[in-house]
Measured scan of single mutants.
Amino acid sequence: KRPMNAFMVWARIHRPALAKANPAANNAEISVQLGLEWNKLSEEQKKPYYDEAQKIKEKHREEFPGW
């Protein structure tokens, strides 16, 4: 399985609240909304998620060399 990128790290945190706020929305609609919200963030706001994604990527590389 591929390691999460910065957007996926961010979305994992924000998806539950968005789903709760929009109970009639299906998963595809929630994903679209998450994408729109992510694109509104500044690079500075995204930086912690890029940092976390890098850590996940490095850990994945250690656990699965050659993947």
Rank of each mutant, 00 (worst) to 15 (best):
L36G: 04
N5F: 05
K1S: 12
P23K: 05
A19H: 10
V9A: 10
W10R: 01
S31Q: 14
M8G: 14
F64H: 14
P23E: 05
L34E: 02
M4S: 05
L34P: 00
N39C: 05
R12A: 08
W10T: 01
G66H: 07
R2M: 12
A11V: 02
G66R: 11
M8S: 11
E43C: 07
K46V: 02
N39D: 12
W10L: 01
E44Y: 04
E29T: 11
V32C: 07
R61S: 14
R12I: 05
A19L: 13
N27W: 09
D51T: 09
K46C: 01
P23V: 02
E63T: 12
W67A: 11
P3M: 15
K59F: 09
W67E: 15
Y50F: 10
D51I: 09
N27Q: 13
K46L: 00
R61A: 13
K57F: 08
A21K: 12
N26C: 09
P16I: 10
P65V: 12
F7R: 06
E43Y: 08
R12F: 06
G66I: 11
K55D: 14
R2I: 01
M8L: 08
L18S: 03
P3D: 14
I30Q: 04
W38I: 00
D51L: 11
R15T: 05
N27S: 14
N39E: 12
A17E: 07
A19R: 13
K20Q: 12
E29A: 05
E37S: 05
F7A: 04
E43P: 14
E63C: 06
N27K: 13
Q54L: 13
F64V: 12
P23R: 03
W67V: 14
W10F: 11
G66F: 06
P23N: 05
H60D: 14
E63D: 08
W10M: 01
I13M: 12
W67I: 09
A25I: 14
E43D: 11
D51R: 12
N22P: 02
K59V: 12
A53W: 04
K59L: 12
A19P: 01
R12K: 15
A28L: 05
P3N: 09
Q45K: 07
M8W: 09
P3A: 11
L34H: 00
R15D: 00
L41G: 00
K59H: 12
M8K: 14
K46S: 00
P65N: 07
K55L: 07
L36Q: 14
Q33M: 08
A6W: 00
E63R: 05
A21R: 12
E43K: 12
P16G: 08
S42T: 09
K57C: 10
A19D: 06
N22E: 03
P3G: 09
A6I: 04
R12W: 04
F7K: 06
A11T: 07
G35R: 15
E29S: 04
M8Y: 02
P23C: 04
E52C: 04
K55N: 08
H14M: 06
A25K: 13
E52Y: 13
N26W: 03
Q54F: 05
K59C: 13
W38Y: 04
L36E: 14
N39A: 14
A17D: 14
G66A: 13
I56L: 13
E58D: 13
I30D: 01
P23Y: 01
E44F: 02
D51N: 10
Q45V: 05
E58K: 02
V9I: 12
E52Q: 08
V9W: 01
H60A: 14
I56K: 11
L41E: 00
K47W: 04
N5C: 11
P16R: 07
H14L: 00
S31A: 13
P23S: 04
A11I: 00
P23A: 05
A53E: 08
E63S: 13
F7S: 02
G35D: 15
R61D: 11
A6V: 01
W38V: 02
L18W: 09
A11Q: 06
K47C: 11
N26S: 14
Y50L: 08
A17F: 09
L36P: 01
P16C: 03
P3F: 06
M8R: 12
A28M: 07
N22V: 03
E37D: 06
K55I: 09
K59G: 12
H14R: 15
A28C: 06
D51F: 06
N22D: 03
E44W: 05
N26I: 05
D51V: 10
E52M: 11
A25D: 04
K20G: 05
R12M: 11
H14P: 01
L18N: 00
W67Q: 15
R12Y: 04
K47M: 13
K55W: 05
P65T: 08
E52P: 00
S31T: 10
W67T: 14
H60N: 15
F64S: 15
Y49A: 00
G66N: 10
Q54P: 03
P23W: 01
K20N: 14
Q54D: 12
K46G: 01
P65E: 10
L18H: 02
I13T: 13
Q54W: 06
E58I: 06
E44H: 15
M8H: 13
R12S: 11
K47A: 07
K46W: 01
W10V: 00
R15Q: 13
A17L: 15
P16A: 07
R12G: 12
S31P: 03
K46M: 01
